[in-house]
Design a protein around this nucleic acid. Structure first.
Length: 477
RNA sequence: GGCGGCGUACCCAAGUGGCUAAGGGGGCAGUCUGCAAAACUGCUAUUCAGCGGUUCGAAUCCGCUCGCCGCCUCCA
């Protein structure tokens, strides 16, 4: 009973067996840093962040590399338009990406290589491919000869004849075959360049990932990930280059995440429906964005909309309200920890869900069954047996602690969560507490008309009041 | 045209051969409350796009039809 993963290479769910017992090497294609990252980048990063967290949780020593593509046509274009250098552009957007990831609670990978720091390795790889007859030089450019690699198309399920027939491949007279792709591009005077045996130039996109992957993780890795759109041609080309070069399988398991759609359509510059992570973070908490992403399977497409994000927020609210109840009624349940064997037993269904191709949606669903259970226990507390209730709540809290760490959600103290919302209240907190005080006096006088008027007034501003035996509390809706 | 995926309630969504089709949101009713809110309880899919087939048994496997989406060009 181990972890199963859906492998894009075989299109099947397979048992996950790393090359080296207890150790996992994973590589995920990171951003090309020419602009702010969008919510789709966030999904990919969060999905693989959870995979990374879970593998570590399951006791693997994980070496995880995620690159920055910091040399590319789009970066050059952007720099030219701004009158800036490509370094300035890439530096700015690497920083922005790092900030976005931190805001989203995405843990730092072990290695975060930049393409420009791996140029010597790329040149070596290209030299190797030329020597082995898989690449050829044409006037300062180097191309990979796709047809020499017999297995080309094994990941994307395409065959070279059909690709050729597709005719959407740009025709470049200098290529021996339209399917061939650039390993090294001859530099134009105003573009960044590095010296090479073929003259000044810069690397092609695909060779970057192969070189960085091999440099940091080795010739065969366990997991290679990225968005579904990278399957072809990027990952197909990575396989062709790497396997031709080393003669070894490049990656054992290929994992691909689905898209984030907006209004049923893929985000794209041409449609003008790009939602940046920054914009999303102005509208929603990082936690609700993570919950939104993790509430469906990482391979399915998800629809970003006001409704779906509101539902994610409602989940967070329900969870933290329950935690707040536990903290107020049985604070020791949150301070203590349950016996290990009991915890392990109760974690089983959750582990089974995560083992099944990282089914975070099911895991979250199961967590909410525990939330309901906790609330029932809390309701029963006044008439039930407090010791038993506390014991069970301690177990549930213990479960939540483990799962929160894996998913990267529900990790805060409930007060912190609600105070954060309160800090974004549309009216000052002092004003609200003053109104609450006035309302309490009205209630004491049994002037319910006045009390209700105050409550309604606050409600219109998004402030919800809750009368409890300990007094009136307020929440931001 | 080639390749791949999806279609589960009002919405989101898990489930891919067999206990009552998870969970969240929404709605309705009840308990609680001065009234609310929150929480809890019950109801909201006798059925999984449609039609056939395989099977003792299918949402799950196979075939066809309809609808939606992605890749085939840079793309998470």
């Amino acid at each position: 009973m181990g972890i199963k993963v859906h492998n894009s290479l075989t299109r099947r769910k397979e048992e996950f067996i790393p090359i080296e017992a207890g150790r996992v090497r994973m590589y995920v294609c990171g951003p090309t840093v020419y602009d702010l990252s969008h919510i789709g980048h966030a999904r990919s990063a969060i999905a693989f962040d959870v995979i990374y967290r879970y593998l570590r949780y399951r006791g693997y020593s994980v070496t995880y590399a995620r690159n920055y593509t910091d040399v590319d046509d789009k970066i050059i274009d952007r720099a030219r338009k701004e009158g800036a250098t490509t370094e300035e552009v890439s530096e700015r957007y690497i920083k922005a990406y790092d900030e976005d990831m931190e805001a989203l609670g995405v843990r730092l990978p072990t290695h975060r290589p930049r393409a420009t720091e791996t140029i010597p390795e790329m040149i070596e790889a290209i030299k190797g491919l030329i020597e082995k007859g898989y690449a050829y030089v044409v006037d300062g450019d180097v191309y990979y000869s796709v047809r020499r690699f017999r297995e080309y198309g094994k990941l994307s399920g395409k065959n070279t004849e059909e690709l050729e027939a597709g005719a959407r491949v740009e025709v470049d007279e200098r290529k021996e075959d339209p399917l061939d792709f650039a390993l090294w591009k001859k530099g134009k005077p105003e573009e960044p360049w590095w010296p090479s045996p073929w003259g000044r130039g810069r690397p092609g996109w695909h060779i970057e990932c192969s070189a960085m992957c091999i440099k940091y993780l080795g010739e065969t890795i366990d997991i290679h990930g990225g968005g579904k759109d990278l399957i072809f041609p990027h990952h197909e080309n990575e396989i062709a280059q790497s396997e031709a070069l080393t003669g070894k399988p490049f990656a054992r398991y290929w994992l691909h995440n689905g898209f984030v759609n907006i209004e049923k359509e893929k985000m794209s510059k041409s449609l003008g429906n790009i939602l940046t992570i920054r914009d999303a973070l102005m509208l929603h908490t990082p936690e609700s964005i993570r919950l939104f992403v993790l509430s469906s399977h990482y391979r399915s497409p998800v629809e970003y909309s006001h409704t779906t994000l509101k539902e994610a927020e409602a989940k967070a609210e329900r969870f933290y309200r329950t935690m707040l109840r536990i903290k107020n009624m049985f604070p020791r349940a949150l301070e203590g920890s349950p016996p290990e064997d009991r915890l392990a037993e109760r974690l089983k269904p959750f582990m089974a869900a995560m083992d099944d191709d990282f089914n975070t949606a099911l895991t979250i669903g199961l967590m909410f069954e525990e939330v309901s259970r906790a609330n029932r226990l809390l309701d029963s507390a006044p008439t039930g047996r407090p010791e038993e209730v506390e014991e069970e709540l301690t177990t549930i809290a213990g479960l939540f602690k483990e799962l929160s760490g894996i998913l990267g959600v529900f990790e805060r103290w409930p007060e912190a969560y609600f105070n954060d919302l309160k800090s974004h209240a549309p009216i000052p907190a002092e004003e609200i507490t003053a109104l609450i005080k006035e309302r309490e006096e009205a209630r004491r006088r049994r002037d319910y008309a006045r009390a209700d008027a105050i409550r309604d007034e606050l409600r219109e501003k998004g402030i919800v009041l809750e009368d409890t035996p300990e007094g009136t509390r307020w929440f931001v809706k």
